[in-house]
Design a binder for these strands. Structure first.
Lengths: 250, 250
DNA sequence: CGATAACTGTATCCGGCGGACACTTGGTGT
DNA sequence: ACACCAAGTGTCCGCCGGATACAGTTATCG
């Protein structure tokens, strides 16, 4: 167990995480009834992560919140890695139901739902990097987006690439805008405007080295209160996709 | 120090990290000469992170690689947080020099350079999430991209949004494709094709629940060896931007 | 009814971050 | 020239989190 820690998965971990996520574990009938469940534990952990940040999620803390000792949890998850994988899929939840409409409306709705999830569970951003076990809900979200693009005439690879493109935009924007947690546990959300003012503060002291950035930030700060970088990006992406779709169906 | 750990910054941390990053520390003249330097330490830490993953970067390990004890490092960095901030800016390095050409060529080149950096330092993806102290090199990269967009007639906010859009795509794609580290320390890179086959493997067992995804993946797998999701996304984004630029200059 | 499987708790190891404090080094003031 | 003292370094230690071993407890099956 040399190089395993924190966010990294070895092959064995992925295997057991997969079993848990996809429900390949038949709970046996012998012995005392479990006082806990993977769901309850995951919920407790998610509550902590939502309220106080991922760093506060320790086996001890989760167990304490459930009035158990930390070792009980190891009967439900082989290790913290698997708990986190389960937290991810639980926090994602059921994929959204997209209303009727064209692919553009559907995919826009989908992106906005992603955004909401990231707002509610900011720690997802820290934890969904790199290779990991993919759960049913995560796959369901992908299905949902691909489904919106299926009737467009794009081929399979293009559909997948398009979905990756949209998720990338949403994720990155969420990362810019979110929110570490204050020691008190309250979330100090930062709007786009605040970010720009932080940048502006830096540029006051070192502006001469970054002329283009300085003028851009100045114009953005003056330009006022349109903080819709999410929509901006989505519109560009959708415009670009539309061109491709038009070319394909021509 | 209740809720501080790992990747999170308190206000004080940001302050000291800022001083380090922007070189506001005048080394005094009294006492023995420092045997180390922030740069050397950061380089050593980066080497470890590159070769064996971020998880293996501990103060002990970094110090050991430099033949010092861990406490020496605390004369250079108040804590691990600041070391990591310094690692980020060092690993990013000088912003690239973009050749001549239109904004599209320049921004494409810029994105590709980003991609290369993420390939070389995969841990950057894990560590550049959430609020953090921004160093001069990181700002330099932004400057570089904004500069490419300055002559397009987009306003400041649009330029910034466009840059965020591109970085989001590159980052997310890098996250999909990268690479945890095996215990042996070798990097097991995963190509796009491998990712698709992992997906395909899952869908074999649970495909009925994800029909659209199944057909998309099947078509992508059959479709063959065009693994250029990076270019796909960039082209869509640039097409979308081009429409906006055309509309602005009309 | 007892054997057995399964859940929970206690004690313990390991490793990482960071602090306390003593020791060493080498400019600076007198 | 010498003492002083700031600054760098090393040793020991406390704390905490993940993970294991093992004993104690509970409920089902033979």
């Amino acid at each position: 167990m040399a190089a395993k820690k924190d966010g990294e998965f070895g092959p064995k971990d992925q295997a057991s995480a997969m079993e848990l996520l996809w429900g390949a574990v038949g709970r046996p009938t012998r012995g005392p009834k479990p006082a806990l469940s993977t769901e309850r534990i995951a919920r407790a952990a998610i509550d902590i992560a939502d309220a106080e940040g991922l760093a506060m999620v320790s086996m001890q803390r989760v167990a304490a919140d459930l009035d158990f000792t930390k070792m009980s949890l190891y009967r439900y998850f082989p290790g913290k890695t698997e708990l986190i994988a389960f937290m991810i899929d639980t926090a994602l939840g059921e994929p959204p139901a997209l209303g009727e409409g064209g692919w553009r409306a559907k995919l826009g709705e989908w992106a906005r739902q992603c955004w909401v999830v990231y707002q509610r569970h900011p720690w997802l951003l820290q934890v969904t990097v790199g290779q990991r076990a993919v759960g049913p809900n995560e796959l369901g979200w992908m299905e949902c987006a691909v489904e919106a693009l299926a009737p467009t005439g794009l081929d399979g690879a293009e559909q997948l690439d398009a979905v990756v493109l949209v998720t990338g935009h949403v994720r990155n924007l969420a990362q810019q805008v979110l929110t570490t947690v204050t020691p008190a546990g309250v979330r100090a959300g930062s709007t786009e405007g605040e970010l720009i003012s932080v940048l502006a503060g830096l540029l006051v002291r070192h502006g001469e080295r970054f002329p283009a950035l300085t003028t851009a930030v100045a114009s953005a700060a003056a330009g006022s209160a349109q903080d819709d970088a999410l929509d901006f990006g989505l519109n560009r992406i959708f415009d670009g996709l539309e061109l491709l779709i038009a070319a394909r169906s021509k």
